[in-house]
C-alpha cells in the first residue's frame, strides 16, 4: 500500500473523530472519539515510519498506546463518578459550574 494512502486514511479518520467529538452528546461516546483521534495520529506515525524506514515513530506509537490506556483509566473513573451523581449519560446535564 503506498505511503500516501495511509496518510490520507489517517487524516480522514482524524477529521471524522474530531467532528464526532464536537457533535455527540453521550459522555462515553465522546471518550471513544478522543481515543479515535489518537489512533488516527498513530496511523500517520506508522505511515511515516514505513516511508522513511526509521523505527522512532513506531516507538512513539507504543508510547501513545501506553499513555492512552492510562488516560482512559483515569477518564473512566471520572465518568463513573460523574454518572453516579447525574444518573444519566447526556452531556447537556453537565452544567452545575457556570459563571
Amino acid at each position: 500500500m503506498p505511503f500516501e494512502h495511509l496518510l490520507v486514511l489517517s487524516f480522514v479518520l482524524f477529521t471524522l473523530a474530531a467532528a464526532g467529538f464536537l457533535t455527540h452528546k453521550n459522555i462515553i461516546v465522546l471518550l471513544m472519539f478522543a481515543e479515535l483521534m489518537l489512533n488516527a495520529a498513530n496511523i500517520a506515525l506508522v505511515a511515516f515510519s514505513k516511508f522513511s524506514g526509521a523505527l522512532e515513530p513506531q516507538v512513539f506509537v507504543l508510547m501513545v498506546f501506553a499513555v492512552a490506556a492510562a488516560e482512559a483509566g483515569v477518564g473512566l473513573a471520572i465518568v463513573i463518578l460523574l454518572a453516579r451523581s447525574l444518573k444519566t449519560l447526556n452531556i447537556d446535564t453537565v452544567k452545575n459550574l457556570r459563571g
Binding site: S10, F14, A17, A18, F21, I27, L30, L31, A34, E35, M37, L38, A40, A41, N42, A44, L45, A47, F48, F51, E56, P57, F60, V64, V67, E71, V74, G75, I78, V79, L81, L82, R84, S85, L86, V94, N96, L97
Partner: peptide, 30 residues
C-alpha cells in the same frame, strides 16, 4: 459532584488537546 464535573470537563478537553498534540508530533516528525 462539582469535582467530578470539573475533572470530566478537564479530561474531555484535555484528551481533545492530546489528540491534536499527537497529530502535530506525527506531522512535524514526518
Amino acid at each position: 459532584p462539582t469535582g467530578a464535573e470539573a475533572g470530566y470537563k478537564y479530561f474531555l478537553l484535555g484528551s481533545f488537546g492530546t489528540g491534536m498534540l499527537v497529530m502535530g508530533f506525527a506531522l512535524v516528525y514526518g
